[in-house]
Design a protein around this nucleic acid. Structure first.
Lengths: 326, 326
DNA sequence: AACGTTGACGTCAACGTTGACGTAACGCTC
DNA sequence: GAGCGTTACGTCAACGTTGACGTCAACGTT
């Protein structure tokens, strides 16, 4: 209640013990009588004492804080991942600091340095540009770090990777099982696109590959989908880089008078919250961002608690969610 | 590059000066020769020295960090606000810490205490339950705090409030100007709903009020929209609590064979990124979250830099964005 | 030549906390 | 009743940094 600045000294003075004893009570270390404990706790309440985590971390070298670094908060992929991380971290007593890189490697370097200055115990990182190398350097420098879905892996860096190629393969197999043979890939220029394209090419091996690229946004999707319709008018399915682009494809197809899924089937990627509520609800590949985040925290927490450097590469399944658009 | 832990002492030892001099160089305080400055900077680079912000904050009482507390990251309102805050904070050298309350007052108390333990310089807060009182207590306790869109304001608390009632009024006026007279309000049980409802009732005064309530989610929207259709089959417009519910209404209307906007117009609230890309692009009320965040940072930064306690109540306009759904 | 001023450092303590270690009092054992 | 272990404390230094202040040499002024 009272003016917010009180310290161990204030509590100690009020009770008439040493600060060390108050510290013991605060941390439940034991080594104090129940009577003393009660008096100290009472004083803590009266003074509204709150431990200064900066001072504590300065000496313990543990801040009980981790960093989560991603491209952008408005990237639909990120918030769910962030919630998964945040939730898992909370349950093991870790606080999460978020930072955004705008997918720039330079900016990533800056925010990581800033987090290290704040003495975070470790960092979960969605690599800018998908690049593993800048992260390997961090790991070599002794930072506990876990990469989520890097474009390539490194034995020196803990990572957790969604089976993106597998997910794409499953999506294409699904479309083919429904008789689609002229399947287009509405890709993007992002490094994450190549894995989807790989799955697409593997699973659609016999068919002619129809590939267009655009920005991984709704606007980009409209341009790309239009390009597909123009170049391959007889297309009977579109597999999009993400749900945003798939959503745009839905609109373009409607405007072109093609019915979904009768004329053209559409499959997205990411299973963002809205995809279930689109015009025809969208078939999509679910990466389960929340669980991805949870796993990343587990990996990181293990690394933090282990004195030696450890690194593990984990893969995480991608699951096809079939809805009315295919 | 080298093993990450080097301190002022290490740099000082290497150059052969005192830590105080290195500190002066690091902070650009002046009081050192250009030659010494160059040698210190070289040593800093060689050793990969990074100042320990915890130690610095411990003594300066400034952490250059602010907290941003909101309901949930996946709440579509939050990420854009967060980006606005983050961006504005960065440009004035402030780092942002995010925390989520799940709209629970207890949880809000916890996360705020946790942020204070980390010695944040101030907190921007989206009040759980819209309640101003718990925040007034914090302000009285000497915490720099800015509330965003509290359900009510207090002269003791800096706040920035969107003109939600005005936005709702404008939306309804727009619908009436298009000849709609049986306008339903698809509200929610959240405290923020009452302001929208107030605007709705004011602007639609002559008409019979048609109000349904449901959870402020896409699923809730489907239930609420269905209820509206069942109870008032001749409804000619739906004004929804948020874009998620409006999106759901769009689907329910389509399923019921009502065309939008010919049979029923739909207006949402929030202007989330996707609303421009819905089946008929959605008319909605834009709160400009990004700017809201920016303003909040300005207010907070001013409070931080002012020794005396100041509090200001600012209102922020809501703007109707007219698209094809109305 | 004496004096004040300025620049370029250095010294010391403090921020709030915890690790390492010390110690006095008490109870128990044989 | 001497010896020993345990309990419940206290003391001191350290974490990495900066604020306050001191020192010393060089310089300009009169």
């Amino acid at each position: 209640m009272s003016r917010s600045e009180s310290t161990l000294h204030d509590v100690a003075a009020r009770v008439g013990v040493s600060t060390r004893t108050v510290s013991r009570v605060v941390n439940g270390e034991g080594g104090f009588s129940t009577a003393t404990g009660a008096r100290v706790k009472a004083a803590i309440d009266e003074l509204g004492y709150r431990p200064n985590l900066l001072a504590r971390s300065l000496i313990t070298k543990r801040s009980m804080t981790i960093g989560l670094v991603g491209g952008s908060m408005t990237d639909p992929f990120f918030p769910e991942l962030a919630e998964g991380v945040h939730e898992a971290a909370s349950t093991v007593g870790l606080t999460t600091l978020f930072a955004a890189t705008d997918d720039s490697v330079d900016r990533q370097h800056q925010v990581v340095e800033s987090l290290r200055s704040r003495a975070v115990d470790g960092i979960i990182l969605f690599p800018a540009g998908g690049l593993i190398e800048p992260i390997r350097i961090l790991a070599d420098d002794g930072l506990n770090v876990v990469a989520i879905n890097p474009a390539e892996t490194s034995v020196a860096v803990s990572s957790i990777s969604s089976d993106i190629t597998g997910g794409a393969r499953t999506a294409i197999a699904h479309l083919r099982s429904r008789g689609r043979r002229r399947i287009a890939f509405l890709g993007s220029d992002s490094p994450y696109s190549t894995r989807r394209e790989a799955g697409y090419r593997e699973a659609a091996a016999d068919d002619e590959p129809l590939v267009a690229k655009a920005n991984p946004t709704a606007d980009g999707g409209m341009i790309g989908a239009q390009e597909i319709l123009d170049r391959w008018p007889r297309v009977d399915a579109i597999f999009a880089y993400n749900d945003l682009m798939a959503m745009a494809a839905l609109r373009v197809l409607e405007a072109a008078g093609r019915s979904v899924p009768d004329d053209v089937a559409v499959v997205g990627f990411d299973n963002i919250g809205l995809s279930a509520h689109l015009k025809p609800p969208l078939t999509t590949v679910d990466l389960d961002q929340r669980n991805l985040g949870r796993l990343a925290v587990e990996l990181l927490a293990e690394a933090i608690d282990t004195p030696e450097r450890i690194s593990r590469q984990v893969t995480h399944p991608a699951r096809l969610v079939i809805r009315a658009s295919s």
